[in-house]
Design a binder for these strands. Structure first.
Lengths: 228, 228
DNA sequence: ACCTGAACACCGTTCAAGT
DNA sequence: ACCTGAACACCGTTCAAGT
């Protein structure tokens, strides 16, 4: 067998990003440290600085990498179908690394890879095809991003534990007198436990697309009123 | 004048949370440190541990405090109006401390104050009044939270800078050959700059409510097809 | 060109004292 | 009961050496 080398492969940005994503999945957003990544690669911390200028830059690269799998949908498909495809792809890319959301939510994590702008372009084209005004296309695009990112947040935080925290708080506070005030919550408790993320995403997309069709299509007859 | 006291007022959890929110707004989510909060209060770091057990617990308390201003809307108003009121209140509470979103998005920041559960109850009642099935009420509730949180993220990250980053990346990559592929993005550039957060929220709520009305009302005639 | 190691100014948290 | 200060095991980042 050959003499032990410093490392099996040369240190590259790609290997660093890969190791950082492994650490992210294992330890959460707060658990990612350059020292930990270096340890995982069998390398001294300061060696990383030969390939990445700072920790924020590494976080940017991680976001880029995690979202790089998304590709624009078939442009010949109906726009509703394209929106669905994009939403599901985006959701899955984020859900694969949910700890990336705090990174996206902070000022860091600005993706700059050209591939993502192609996806952005595809999403905007869908909304243009939906018959929205330019300003509404922008609002719908932001709403689209918001919806998917937000759903990953709510699913990651765990609907179960939110409900558990609620019950716990009630018991600790001993608020039996308010029981009539939490009828809806109590009645829905089992559904909070049984309704899966995929069902949420599907319902939200159904609602979103129905609303877009309703607002975007000028030939919809249900918009008679003006004043109220 | 009296002898200089250690501090003008006694150290309390409330004062600590208040100082932490000031530090959050000034320095971002990553900039909040117990040492910094203690410095701001003119107190030794370890004194904080007499009032709060850990940094995660402080972050929870900060979320609770930031959302404590939201109150349930008038239950006699139409459900659509109640949804709008709740969304705007929730949005504004988050937008007042946008750096709180990364906290919410991580495993930390679980609100436990009873007042928030009253708000949760009110939101669920709206969706019940909208005629949704229990499972759809849960999905709609999660979508509602997702939408507002996500919008704050997109607005905080800044649509302008996203666009600037896009233009910069294009120029750096020198992708003039792909110019036909980014028609929608180029055409919408001025609207990305001019469309305000309030307009996004309004459009998203309009779309959301139109879609909910469309899906929730069984007497809507536009749902004829079944197979496709 | 790339890796090492010491060093700097920070962290959160624990613990023994003080009052 | 509450505040202090030293101490511990961490951080990100810089810089002078090494090869």
């Amino acid at each position: 067998m050959e003499r032990r080398r410093r490392s099996a492969e040369p240190l590259t940005l790609e290997r660093i990003v890969e190791a950082a994503l492994v650490e992210l999945d294992a330890s959460g957003a707060d658990g990612v440290s350059l020292r930990g990544v270096a340890r995982r690669l069998g390398v001294h911390v300061t060696s990383l600085y030969n390939h990445v200028p700072s920790k924020p830059a590494l976080l940017d690269a991680m976001v880029d990498r995690a979202l790089s799998g998304i590709t624009p949908p078939d442009p010949h498909a109906p726009w509703q179908e394209r929106v669905r495809t994009l939403a599901v792809d985006f959701y899955q890319a984020l859900a694969a690394h949910p700890a990336l959301i705090p990174v996206l939510a902070s000022e860091r994590g600005r993706p700059t890879s050209p591939g993502l702008f192609a996806v952005m372009e595809a999403a905007l084209t869908c909304l243009s095809d939906a018959g929205l005004s330019p300003s509404h296309q922008v609002s719908a695009f932001r709403g689209f991003l918001a919806m998917v990112m937000g759903l990953v947040i709510t699913h990651t935080r765990g609907a179960e534990s939110t409900l558990e925290a609620a019950e716990l708080a009630w018991r600790e506070a001993g608020m039996a007198g308010l029981s009539t005030e939490r009828q809806a919550l109590m009645a829905l408790a089992p559904y909070f436990l049984s309704t899966r993320p995929a069902a949420d995403l599907e319902f939200v997309l159904d609602t979103w697309l129905a609303g877009l069709g309703h607002l975007g299509a000028a030939d919809t007859p249900a918009r008679k009123d003006r004043g109220t």
